[in-house]
């Protein structure tokens, strides 16, 4: 039984690591897409939001807010609490 428990903790850990990778990829695409998608034109044609160039506003400011909300949601909803100590001896 103990072995089984060790395994299931690692399954959780593996899944959460994959979620981390997924979040980074999403984060990167958002950041890159807005920055270079809106920022590549000539600065004279930029639009502005709250005084900042739109590319910067969406990529960096909104991007940060989106990541904070997403991370909070995912951690609260999908991350599982597990004991970190091995109870007694656990054989691999």
């Amino acid at each position: 039984m103990k072995n089984k428990k060790g395994d299931s903790r690692f399954q959780i850990a593996h899944r959460e690591a994959l979620i981390g990778v997924g979040l980074v990829i999403f984060n990167f695409i958002w950041w890159f897409g807005f920055a270079y998608g809106l920022g590549h034109k000539d600065p004279s044609q930029y639009t502005y939001v709250l005084g900042l160039p739109a590319w910067f506003f969406y990529s960096c400011v909104v991007g940060l807010i989106v990541m904070v909300v997403l991370v909070t949601f995912i951690v609260k909803r999908y991350f599982v609490e597990v004991p970190l100590d091995d109870e007694g001896k656990v054989d691999e």
């Binding site: 979040l23 991007g63 991370v71």
Partner: peptide
């Protein structure tokens, strides 16, 4: 350069998620 610096936001969640529980 601010854009570049924002790549560091990832460290906030990524490190703990990857090293994480395991």
């Amino acid at each position: 350069w601010v854009l570049l610096a924002m790549s560091q936001v990832a460290t906030g969640y990524f490190v703990l998620m990857i090293l994480g529980k395991k």
